[in-house]
Design a binder for these strands. Sequence first.
DNA 1: TCAATTCGCTAGAGGGTCTAACGTCACGAA
DNA 2: TTCGTGACGTTAGACCCTCTAGCGAATTGA
Lengths: 229, 229
Amino acid sequence: MPTPAPRSSMRERFREQVREDVKAAALDQLAAGGAQAISINAIAKHLGVSGPALYRYFANRDDLLTALVIDAYEDLHDALAHELRAGAPSRTPHERFRALAHAYRAWALAEPHRYELLFKPPLPGYDAHAEPLAAAARSLMALLLGVLAELDREDTPPATEPRSGTYQNEDVLTARTAGASEFHLAVAVWSCLHGIVSLELGGGLSAMTIDVDALFEHEVQVLIERTLV
Amino acid sequence: MPTPAPRSSMRERFREQVREDVKAAALDQLAAGGAQAISINAIAKHLGVSGPALYRYFANRDDLLTALVIDAYEDLHDALAHELRAGAPSRTPHERFRALAHAYRAWALAEPHRYELLFKPPLPGYDAHAEPLAAAARSLMALLLGVLAELDREDTPPATEPRSGTYQNEDVLTARTAGASEFHLAVAVWSCLHGIVSLELGGGLSAMTIDVDALFEHEVQVLIERTLV
DNA sequence: TCAATTCGCTAGAGGGTCTAACGTCACGAA
DNA sequence: TTCGTGACGTTAGACCCTCTAGCGAATTGA
């Protein structure tokens, strides 16, 4: 009795497996040639099946792209959360914030195409997949809000926090209605980080010989000092 | 004798006219459906010619896209320069900077697809059109450096400036080698502006109910105060 | 007037998304 | 065990796209 209660039936397991395979192949194409290089046809050929077979698993190309975006959100969130959890618990809120910022940039530089995928305006039919996508973005925001909250009150690390300084998804909304200023600050911080990373990826900075490492480090410092006013 | 010395021969004039028509049609498609919606075939059909005729005027689709990017850079630059030149000469450097920042955001919001075009990483063959593109970017940077220079020394408006507070293209390089800190500040400011605008266009901000106007205004104020430290 | 160049055309290769219609096979219930 | 149901993968094909090759016609400059 290997599967006494196959809650996920054999079919569903296989289906999920194929979806994962397709996404993996799509990620390869993404890394190789950008979002435009992702081709359902080519993925099918690479998987040994032919053409329209994959439309059993993804409604269309946009559906596949959306799945990649959600995965990327989760991956970025996990990377940042891991970075927060990994360091020594004796780190000051400053150090935790710096670690978060650098982990953010590091993820973006390591997977530029996926980062681009995250923040590229989904212009044509942008109302389609807005729901689960907004949730993923909120999850990221929650992380930032947690660290900023620590930064704000200058205690030593949490220990009284519900979850070691990370908001849960729903808390973002409550935090927004409660302390709008905190929320504004978080958005501002995120905007600044994203601005540098985005320009860096776009090549706008590399065109002028600039030490982006130093620039980023300096801006992080400015952001930290700004929270202490 | 309408054209006694046709320095631009009849052919070249016509050729340039067609190129402009093609770019205009491409801009319509860009505004309607994003960069991905730009199709040489559709443009040709819209212009009444058929298919490959346009390849006499643009080497390929990327060539057309590059032309659009350069035009967009120039348009944005002109819009900002006009904004700087338009206001009353009695404006303080603060006001000039605020005007510049708001004009930047206004242009991006008015033509989101063109703005996206400017800063989207050209990943596949990005070394191709790097030369004229970098020049256009530098031109933008020069504008920002000029206003920041005014902000730095808190005099009343220029009158001793070479060109009313705008650097010329070459001056960017000299300014970089001379005052690296000014250059870093300019990049940081630009990054922050671009970060907010980019997130706003991407929908990351609109997902959470935020008063982006107020946020932007506040961030501009923070940037101004930062230059006075 | 006469070459040279440029233009626009059609034909076509090669790629893509996506739909339609058709066997085939596994599953689950009678 | 048998049988209907539904999911699967297939091919065929419509319809888009980019881009090349080769053709005849028109314009240009000498």
